[in-house]
Design a protein around this nucleic acid. Structure first.
Lengths: 205, 205
DNA sequence: GTCTATAGCGGGATAGAC
DNA sequence: GTCTATCCCGCTATAGAC
């Protein structure tokens, strides 16, 4: 009772420091000792609150995934005009990923390690409904002459590529161009407009 | 003298098994014990020939990087017609990455772990010369009216995105679509043609 | 609810016999 | 050159004192 406030505080402190470390160094690159030290507590507490390192990670992973997925899923099923929808889609990536540029690498890394976890989480979110919705939408737009004949699957993969890859590429790009991460993210603000145009031109009937 | 043949054989056996394991499981996911077992030898031999796990990994990383970079660099500086050059560029990714779909993830993972290594390797290859060449080429094509006004940097990043991301996405895509890796790679053969068209349409004056 | 102390495992590296 | 045996380290997890 008296301790409750403090208890929650410790748990949250672990959670937020673990998030930071996992995102920065990945699962294998982060030890629970690191997390304990950063949270100003000890290994036993982490296992007390979360059962295991794997479990703690699971919570943070899910959080990151939902954060990215939610907005995208919402956008893709809205009934705005098609090209506007494309813009908002791209815009969404930049809004989210500009603030958390580590997310794609984080997700990709850990999905490669443990694909089953993602499948499980996707199943819960029923992404097939959304997938079907946007595919139908594309087919409609083709029929109405808004965009040229195109394969929905390949089109979706292309937009995903253009929207996400620049962020995955951050570390390499900043190393090659010898610029700071901030400068690169700023550059991407312009790139965003570029790919919106790029996609529109590619699809104009 | 008598052993030389055999010596080289052991060394090569370690190298090729290590490559396979590193590519499949990453640096942290691979122990020198795993490598020793797979190579039908022992840990002491690995340290005898390569000094350390880190050193062994370094050799393999450099090999993978050169393999991918060589062909791309060659393509980008050839004097073929522009759209043909784009096709060959995309084609190159698919040729190489269809056979070794793990390379992008492998590179990205390890670049995130140790950016300095990549910078060092890039410096040795003088990519700025190639970067300058292709940028000049794009500007020329714009002037000659072959393609519409476009930013070379953003254009290069877009083509890179379209060419590489589908391979990075392999594990997630196969998990979501519930198909085998082979089926997905086959799908990408069609996607390749799609993005060639996509790029051409986006750049048509 | 908190923390110390330690068990138990798997990692990389190496000394030294052959 | 080869291999066994072993060192030493850092990790996760947990038992048990407070």
């Amino acid at each position: 009772m008296f301790n409750e406030q403090n208890t929650i505080e410790v748990r949250d402190r672990i959670l937020s420091n673990a998030r930071e470390l996992f995102v920065k160094n990945g699962y294998n690159g982060t030890s629970i000792r690191d997390i304990a030290t950063a949270s100003d507590t000890n290994v036993a507490m982490i296992n007390y609150y979360f059962g295991s390192k794997y479990n703690l990670f699971g919570q943070i992973f899910e959080e990151a995934f939902n954060f990215l997925a939610e907005k995208i899923f919402l956008t893709l099923t809205s009934d705005r005009p098609f090209f506007e929808l494309m813009d908002i889609w791209i815009e969404s990536y930049y809004e989210i990923l500009s603030e958390y540029p580590q997310i794609p690498n984080f997700l990709l890394n850990e999905v490669n390690m443990n694909p089953e976890r993602l499948v499980q989480m996707l199943k819960e979110k029923d992404p097939y409904r959304i997938y079907t919705t946007i595919k139908k939408r594309i087919r409609n737009e083709v029929e109405n002459g808004v965009i040229k004949e195109t394969s929905p699957d390949y089109f979706l993969l292309s937009v995903l590529s253009l929207g996400v890859f620049p962020f995955i590429f951050t570390n390499i790009a900043t190393a090659i161009l010898d610029i700071s991460q901030e400068e690169y993210i700023n550059m991407l603000q312009e790139h965003k407009k570029y790919i919106s145009e790029f996609i529109k031109n590619a699809l104009k009937p």
